[in-house]
Each structure stands twice: as structure tokens, then as C-alpha cells.
Simulated scan of single mutants.
Amino acid sequence: MRIVLAEDSLLLREGLVRLLDEAGAEVVAAVGDADELLRAVTSHRPDVAVVDVRMPPTFTNDGLRAAVEIRRTAPGTAVLMLSQYVEESYAADLLATGGGVGYLLKDRVARLSELTDALDRVASGGTALDPEVVAALFATRTRRRDPLDTLSPREREVLSLMAEGRRNQAIGRALSLTAGTVEKHIAAIFDKLGLPPSADDHRRVLAVLTWLRGSANEP
């Protein structure tokens, strides 16, 4: 099985290369951003693209958008998405592209048997969804449509500290996070709250306003 791997963290990328090798796969390219991923798939035409959801340049859903493009331009290439959190809207977008797709939490990938099984499923045209993703997809059918519901617990912590007026460095100290991790969380918050880049609106302020409205409505 020939694989193109896309993961922006160098350490995690190298670890995944070793895991995929143990799973009996051949990693023909390992890249760090969505643009490189698209070029690598065009060049190598792998059996499977293993892709992180959040990648440069925006660290929001660049990996997902690249995966959807791969399914459109190279339908013979299956896609296995990796994410640190359950992001059901991303999973739904990927599933809409048809068979040969999977979505796993990164914690699950460390289990070689589960990784091998997922690769085999997507490569054969099936699907491989993390059990937590499946549960989240079902939950969205009945859950109240509050944008704050899509935030992970850590993202809620980051947003609450933003509401206190703390800058990224102070947020990192308070939560013992690196500057890059804080930036990733904030980018994810903007994405989930539907706050695209704009010359007219300050997204940080708008995100805090959303948090305040949600807090005011909680019992």
C-alpha cells in the first residue's frame, strides 16, 4: 500500500512514518502543509492519503479542504483523516465525498491494529470512522444548534481566557500550552464559530461576544 502522509508536526510526522512502516505500508511522501499534500498526491498517485485536519497555512480545516479536493481530482486515492478532537462537521464533509474515506482520532492511531484496519478499509473503498466520531454525528441530530457546542473543552478554556482580555502568551502560561498550540486553538475557535478573516471585523472580539452570549443563556 503506497501512502502520502500530511502532518505539520515534524515529530508526529516521523512517528507516523514509523507506524505506517510497521503496518506494512510504503510512505512515498511525508509533507507538512496542504499545498504540498496536493502536489504529492498528483505526483505519486498513492493508494491512501493520511491527512491531519488542521494544517498550515491557516491551521483550521486546510487538511480537510485538501482531502475533499483529492477525492474530486484523484478519486482512486482513499483518504484517512486524523484529528486531535472529534469534529463532526469535518467528518460529515468528508463522508459526502463517497466511499474510501476514514476519520480517526490521533490517540487511536497509536494502536497499530486499529491503524492497519482503518487503512485496509479505506483502501478497499469502505469507511473507517472513529467510534467517538460516530457518536458525535448521531448527537448532532438532536443537539441544540449553539455554535459553542462545537468547541472542545480546551477551546472553551482558551476562549474564556480570551474573554478575560488575556493575550496568547498569557493564555499559554495559564494552560501550560506552547504559543503554536494556543494559535491552533484560536484558529479552530474562529473556524467553528463561523468567523472568517475580515478587514472590517475583529474576530477575537466577535468570538468573545459569542462566548458571552452563550454564557448568559446557560442555566
Rank of each mutant, 00 (worst) to 15 (best):
L159C: 02
A66K: 14
L38P: 01
D130V: 07
A135W: 08
V41L: 04
S160I: 13
V79I: 10
S43E: 15
D117P: 03
G98D: 11
L94H: 08
S89V: 15
G76D: 03
V79E: 00
E157W: 06
R167L: 13
A40I: 08
L175A: 09
R141I: 05
R72D: 02
L161W: 04
G76N: 07
F59M: 04
A49I: 02
L129K: 05
L148D: 00
A67Y: 11
A170N: 07
P153T: 12
Y103I: 14
P46D: 05
D107G: 13
V41I: 07
A135L: 15
A163W: 10
L137Q: 08
T178L: 01
A179C: 08
S83C: 06
T42R: 12
Q84C: 03
R156P: 00
L80D: 05
R144E: 12
N61M: 14
A163S: 15
T77D: 06
N168V: 15
R71N: 05
S160L: 14
G102Q: 13
S83A: 09
A128M: 14
L37N: 06
R72E: 06
D35G: 09
D52Y: 05
P147D: 10
R108Q: 07
D33R: 09
T60K: 07
M162D: 08
V50H: 09
L37A: 08
G63Y: 06
P57D: 07
L137A: 03
S124N: 04
V53W: 05
A170T: 13
R45I: 12
L80M: 07
P57Y: 06
R144C: 08
R141Q: 15
V158Q: 06
L37Q: 08
A92D: 08
F59K: 00
D62P: 00
A139T: 11
L64V: 10
R167M: 13
R45N: 05
A163P: 06
S124D: 09
G99A: 13
D35Q: 10
M81W: 02
T60M: 02
T142F: 13
R166P: 04
P131L: 08
R143A: 15
G172W: 00
A174I: 02
A139L: 09
A179F: 07
T140V: 15
G126R: 09
L64K: 10
T142V: 05
Q169M: 11
T140P: 05
T178W: 04
D117Y: 12
T178M: 12
V41C: 11
V86T: 10
R65P: 03
T60I: 00
T60W: 01
L129Y: 04
M55P: 03
V109A: 09
